[in-house]
Simulated scan of single mutants.
Amino acid sequence: MAVSQRAMLISTIMQRILNVFLLGLGAILLLFLGRETYHLALVLFVNNDQSSSYLLIEGIVIYFLYFEFIALIVKYFSSGYHFPLRYFIYIGITAIIRLIIVDHKNPIDTLIYAAAILVLVVTLYLANTDRLKRE
Rank of each mutant, 00 (worst) to 15 (best):
A2K: 11
V3T: 08
S4T: 07
S4M: 07
R6M: 03
M8D: 06
S11T: 13
S11H: 14
I13H: 06
R16P: 00
F21M: 08
L22I: 01
L23C: 09
G24L: 13
L25Q: 06
G26F: 05
F32R: 13
F32Q: 12
G34K: 09
R35M: 07
H39E: 08
H39S: 08
A41V: 10
V43P: 02
V43E: 04
N47W: 05
N47H: 12
N48Q: 10
N48P: 01
D49T: 13
Q50L: 13
Q50F: 09
S53I: 12
S53G: 04
I57W: 08
E58G: 10
I60V: 15
V61R: 09
Y63F: 15
Y63H: 09
Y63I: 01
E68L: 15
A71Y: 04
I73G: 02
I73Y: 01
Y76S: 04
S78F: 11
Y81K: 13
Y81D: 10
H82R: 15
L85A: 12
L85G: 10
Y87V: 02
F88E: 00
I89D: 00
I91G: 06
G92S: 14
A95T: 10
A95D: 00
I96N: 02
R98A: 15
V102A: 14
K105E: 02
N106G: 11
P107C: 09
D109G: 12
T110W: 05
I112S: 07
A115V: 14
L120E: 00
V122A: 14
Y125V: 15
D130A: 13
D130Q: 12
D130S: 14
